[in-house]
């Protein structure tokens, strides 16, 4: 792995870190995921962290000419502590509500200077669905040339697992000790209403699908959005080695559908192609997570209904009916 060393420059301003890195060799096979790492092994993530897993493949797909804009979220911590960083790319950490707006300014500045640098917001669900939704909406509406990635662990995990707008019905969090009484907010429908040039979902359990989507998104100018499911071991209360398994269960049960929407055309991708036709029981997903310990039979039925409605809606869109 790359050696990591930091140098504090002299002068009145020490607000930055310089890391000495080796640059990855040019990629020969575009279909394969490159070996080069931009998230180094020194991260301070939890064991089994889906956020760092996703970030690893996002940055591999994005390559060196990339700046990450990160609002307050788990990834604020994952990078490590000043004066060192686990990120081998420029990372700009910003206020909770501001990621998409910062990216707007950054993207415009780069384009004004004739630079094609990728500007990627990498934000949690709270920073996207709740406090950051206004800035995201504005940036999408303005046609900002950037990629916004929401990694969704369905709670405010960085502050110790509080309910967010993305927390599903029935899930226990520290602020919904009896289980959440409301449904998960339909972020993708909100984003779709802005007609971004590219919109996709992905899941930490399927890195190739994720990688392909990021790589494709970054070839298209304009506002791109990706929503990635991030099964969180401490938050969802499952063993640390089960992150990938949990993601697969979500997709197989149809609770999470992998797709991309380009030029108004929806395509189901990867493992979701099969799940559109045949799904495992939702209970297989719910029962292995401690957070659903208090879910009621009515809530489980509600979730099943929502899954079926969502699948049917997506199928109609695939079929060109809506």
């Amino acid at each position: 792995m790359h050696g990591m060393r930091s140098i504090l420059p002299a002068g009145p301003n020490q607000y930055f870190i310089i890391i000495h890195v080796k640059y990855p060799k040019e990629r020969l096979d575009t279909m394969a995921i490159p070996d080069e790492e931009f998230l180094l092994k020194t991260t301070s993530a939890c064991a089994g962290c889906p956020s760092s897993l996703i970030l690893r493949y996002v940055t591999k797909a994005a390559g060196t000419d990339t700046v990450l804009v990160i609002p307050a979220c788990c990834t604020s911590v994952i990078q490590g502590v000043y004066p060192t960083t686990a990120m081998n790319l420029p990372v700009y950490n910003v206020a909770f509500a501001s990621a998409a707006a910062v990216a707007s300014g950054m993207s415009e500045a780069f384009r004004a200077e004739g630079k094609k640098t990728n500007v990627i917001c990498y934000a949690g669900d709270g920073g996207t669905i709740d406090i950051g939704i206004q800035a995201l909406s504005g940036a999408l509406e303005r046609g900002t040339d950037f990629l916004y990635i929401c990694y969704d662990n369905e709670a405010y995990s960085n502050t110790g697992m509080q309910r967010s707008g993305a927390t599903p019905l029935g899930a226990m969090t520290t602020t919904t000790p009896g289980g959440k009484k409301d449904h998960k907010k339909d972020l993708d429908a909100i984003v779709a209403a802005h007609n971004p040039v590219y919109q996709a979902t992905a899941c930490a359990a399927y890195p190739q699908d994720l990688y392909n989507k990021v790589e494709k998104a970054l070839t298209i100018p304009g506002p791109k959005f990706m929503h990635v499911l991030a099964p969180c071991p401490p938050g969802w209360r499952f063993p640390s080695e089960k992150t990938v398994e949990m993601g697969k269960l979500a997709v197989k049960a149809g609770l999470w559908v992998l797709y991309e929407r380009e030029n108004g055309k929806l395509t189901i991708t990867g493992a979701s192609k099969a799940a559109m036709k045949k799904r495992i029981p939702v209970e297989d997903y719910l029962s292995v997570q401690g957070r659903f310990r208090k879910i009621t039979a009515e809530q489980t039925a509600e979730i099943k209904k929502t899954v079926e409605e969502n699948i049917a809606r997506l199928q109609r869109e695939v079929d060109g009916i809506c």
Binding site: I17, I18, V21, V81, Y92
Partner: peptide, 9 residues
């Protein structure tokens, strides 16, 4: 590349 505004002791 460097990190800006990371966790700071």
């Amino acid at each position: 590349p460097g990190g800006y505004g990371t966790l700071t002791p």
